[in-house]
Amino acid sequence: MKILVAVKRVIDYNVQIRVKPDNSGVEKDNVKMSMNPPDENAVEEAIKLKDSGEVTEVVIVSIGQEKCQDTIRTALAMGADRGILVKAGDDIEPLAVAKTLKNIVEKEKPNMVLLGKQAIDDYCNQTGQMLSAILNWPQGCFVSELGINDSAITISREIDEGLEQLEIQLPAVVTCDLRLNEPRFASLPNIMKAKKKPIEIIEIESLGVDTIPKVKYLKVEEPPVRQGGVMVADVKELIQKLKYEAKVI
């Protein structure tokens, strides 16, 4: 069994985001970048399945600039077997990403594709669902538990009300929640070994994918600064305000 894991290179979650003065986007120069956190869960899960013998090969794919190789290497150091970088511009939207991944899936023929449930930059939460749609595969989204039995997987999905359990026939697309596992650390010797693992580089143009955006980002601004409200005199006044003014209790 073979798993394809898609990973995205994003601004590190510890970095304080700064909007560019010209409102064209956010500042990325010299900013620490790393693997999108839920994608790490996807990588971890694939490697766990490989450790347990259910899976024979884990292939990592990332789409973006040359530097995405670093992100792929991180996954290789965690234990994945090889990588594919589809070289593309910085901001291609989820639909184009899904179409690109479909191309790779058709080439690699994995039994399952794992992705993070959403990226912490654009916050779209779309790519996995879109990929499964255009592959006409079933989807399992926001997964916090995953078990394989023969040709199917059983999953628990994190939903607002609690958990939903599904049995899904393979091949399938699964998007991973942070609760799925705790990603391992890559050891130093494994980072060394990862430097020698192969990464295939493909130009996105060669795949014939339409990457023209269908959603235009007109501007990116800082969120409005929240203003302080009123001081209330006592608890009674507070409760009255919450009940009759704000209407939240």
């Binding site: 705790e182 990603p183 391992r184 650390f185 050891s187 130093l188 010797p189």
Partner: peptide, 22 residues
């Protein structure tokens, strides 16, 4: 190098990755 994945009390967590000698 420092051990990774050690909890507050100094016990290894599931993600424990021992440091190595360089």
């Amino acid at each position: 190098t420092g051990d990774m994945g050690v909890d507050k009390e100094g016990q290894p967590k599931d993600t424990f990755e021992p440091g190595i000698i360089l």
